[in-house]
Design a protein around this nucleic acid. Structure first.
Lengths: 338, 338
DNA sequence: ATAAAAAATGACAGCGCTATCATTGCCAGT
DNA sequence: ACTGGCAATGATAGCGCTGTCATTTTTTAT
């Protein structure tokens, strides 16, 4: 049947061509380079397309043009609003340029990441955005063989050839620790969970600052591998105060934990910040509303998304990329909890 | 050049075939139907694939087989953990069956939804999962013309031909209102933002119950179109107490608003639940940790994802689908705040 | 040993689209 | 009138893979 509407029932370019009495290639042009097709014809084609509900098949398009217009984005989690914002920034940039973003969540696991890289490489993406630098060797090899540009987000690296957009987790943690010191705290604890590379970097920043101040005491560090949550924050605060009851400030590696701690203080009647100062990391929207409001580090996560996307876009399109590493900094938000 | 590694530099089936000395179709089979290829050959092909970093091109595969193994999922938002959980459930089911999930966020806008439907239809998905029933006519037409199965999530509909998995938003809201009544509250307010169809359904449920109790007073309803957030919850509580100061219970349309209200009460020294009972909707993880802990409705969002995915899968694969509508119910979580 | 069945492999065409290189018609400039 | 240039459209081939239908080889049954 030469006149069947293709094997799937979906309308094809060929169908549109037949309907408007031109060749398929002309219809293709009407969509991709409208200026190359006469006004009148373009309108007729558009009309026919609307009538038939024609939607171009990207698979065929990608195959023929050798450009998928896909970009893959891998983030560790979405149950943390941090990455939702990053992804929002990425999407915005790519959508404006006609690219489709494919997003995957690797749950902080390098193994899952590899599976995802493989899965998304199958979409022949024109580029890829990864979170951090913690990849398996085999993943790295896959990416090299794919030969597409990669930009890393959130962490920075001087490693040759690597493109990255983020900020210094260490410096941020150092700044927060210094803030607590400047508030006269002497027995500052550090509590973290979900020990991904960024969390560990924050831990190093804390240590650097606290050692420099000559106030390091190992029993004030509490690191657990569990997934972060508000509930866990309460648990960890309790545990910390058992092993180090005289602690006068706690720096949590993220706002979720800090919030849980704030609730626990409320429950136990621990005065914040008088008896105990509490600090978080990320500055989630809620941290401004808590009682007391939470001192934290505002991280430029939306901006990281936007800038990383722009950098990747430049790499894909062959535009000049001035810097391989973009440090977007961070801001201390000193609030009531300290 | 017959021996080039394809135009993109990526390894192709052909390359693998050449390397192992068999035909391309056999290599394809080694991946898709390993049992149809001899043990030895399969291993050699696998080895070669690993060496070259071969990843199959889904675009080509989809085109040739007329099955993309993609499914598209559209949710209104991710900045709300509710949908993150739903999507997690969906992903799990589809991944187990070899499908790739493509996710889009429509920001509660039917217009954005249409753009996304179009964008994802271009991936020739084998099925689609949508949130709610609030679509444009033109979107509906597009979907019909695409001829793929669709399952709607979160809301239920008896509409002929529509498949849906969710729970009754109205009944849930009614249950919560009755719970507040059962606690002896007489001046129960309803506060909502982001007036999507589900929010409005909750409003109806509240009204039904409160009218039945003969306690309806229009000035205790506060509905605003703004996006939900914890901060907004605090603002709306203040506003409500200005226009209806003697309110003795507030039912918020979601937990975020309720949390903000809880904080505001803390700030203003309003005793919860003694002076004012506060209730939310969804039962986010954090709602158990707040002080006081929040009474809310536990919604089966993860399960909705799982069941909707299963239903869609059955529709795609032509398996029997016993019910077109699956009501997963909800649970009242009565806690300290009421 | 022989026929029949099963397992393993291959040839070929084509999915829907676009890159590339024609071809046609028309108009400006001389 | 004639050349050159441009705008509008078309013909052809092929992207990488798989469905379908052979063909060859091996195994099993008699």
């Amino acid at each position: 049947m030469a006149s069947r509407a293709s094997s799937t029932g979906r309308a094809t370019l060929e169908d549109l061509a037949r309907l408007t009495g031109v060749s398929a290639i002309t219809v293709s042009r009407a969509f991709r380079h409208p200026e190359k097709v006469s006004e009148d014809l373009r309108r007729r084609i558009q009309q026919a397309a609307d009538d038939m509900g024609y939607v171009r098949n990207r698979a065929a398009s990608a195959l023929a043009s050798n450009r998928s217009m896909n970009i893959a984005v891998l983030v560790p989690s979405l149950s943390n609003l941090v990455f939702v914002e990053t992804v929002t920034g990425i999407e915005k940039v790519f959508r404006e340029h006609g690219y489709q973003m494919l997003m995957g969540v690797n749950h902080y696991s390098a193994e899952e990441e590899e599976a995802l890289v493989r899965a998304y490489l199958a979409f022949a993406p024109d580029g890829m955005l990864l979170t951090g630098f913690n990849h398996r060797d085999s993943t790295r090899r896959l990416l090299e063989q794919a030969g597409i540009p990669i930009v890393h987000m959130m962490e920075l690296s001087e490693r040759e050839g690597a493109y990255s957009v983020g900020f210094s987790q260490e410096a941020a943690a150092q700044t927060m620790t210094e803030h607590l010191l400047s508030r006269g705290r002497q027995r500052i604890a550090f509590v973290a969970s979900q020990l991904d590379p960024r969390t560990l970097a924050r831990n190093r920043g804390y240590r650097d600052a606290i050692i420099k101040a000559g106030l390091y005491e190992s029993h004030r560090e509490l690191l657990v591998p569990d997934q972060s949550s508000v509930a866990l924050g309460a648990v960890l605060l309790k545990r910390l105060l058992e092993q180090a009851p005289d602690t006068d400030a706690v720096f949590f590696c993220n706002d979720d934990l800090a919030q849980g701690a704030l609730f626990e203080c409320l429950r136990q009647g621990i005065a914040v910040p008088d008896r105990l100062a509490v600090a978080g990391f990320n500055d989630l929207a809620i941290s401004e509303c808590t009682v007391p409001s939470l001192t934290t580090i505002k991280t430029p996560r939306y901006e990281v998304g936007v800038e990383a996307a722009r950098m990747l876009l430049a790499l894909i399109e062959g535009d000049p990329v001035p810097r391989k590493m973009i440090d977007l900094g961070f801001q201390l938000r000193a609030r009531e909890s300290t």
